[in-house]
């Protein structure tokens, strides 16, 4: 069955020194661990706890996520283009799961 991929909006090319926006969205329940099921048992916490953006393996942006972040977290930030290379977007989930997207940026 299809699983919604994490989505990223980022330009493929940018001028040297240009500041550009990056928008990311991922479908995720962000189960807080604070809820109970019908029988009164706590539903275990399962959230995305970290988001990282690397450029040529160097972390250029990262954010820790906590229980109070809504489902389907949307993260928008800005980068400055300095050199061409690989942008990597990583979401880390409780229990060790990770979701990764890669993108090539050409800086002219």
């Amino acid at each position: 069955m299809f699983t919604p991929a994490p989505r990223v909006q980022v330009p493929s090319a940018a001028a040297n020194g240009e500041v550009f926006p990056v928008k990311t969205l991922i479908s995720h329940q962000m189960e807080t661990g604070l809820r109970h099921d019908d029988q009164g048992n706590a539903i275990p916490r399962k959230i995305l706890n970290k988001f990282i953006c690397r450029h040529n393996d160097v972390v250029v942006f990262s954010v820790d996520l906590h229980e109070a972040i809504a489902a389907n977290p949307f993260i928008e930030f800005y980068l400055r283009a300095t050199e061409s290379g690989r942008l990597e977007f990583v979401w880390e989930e409780d229990g060790g799961g990770i979701y990764v997207l890669e993108h090539h940026l050409t800086v002219a």
């Binding site: 699983t3 919604p4 989505r7 479908s27 329940q29 489902a71 389907n72 928008e76």
Partner: peptide
Amino acid sequence: AQDLFLDAWERHYRGMIEWLPAQF
């Protein structure tokens, strides 16, 4: 009722429905 829908989509239709907000 976003929380009710997202919860139901996860329970009944996992991976079938994707919602993209205007901000994205």
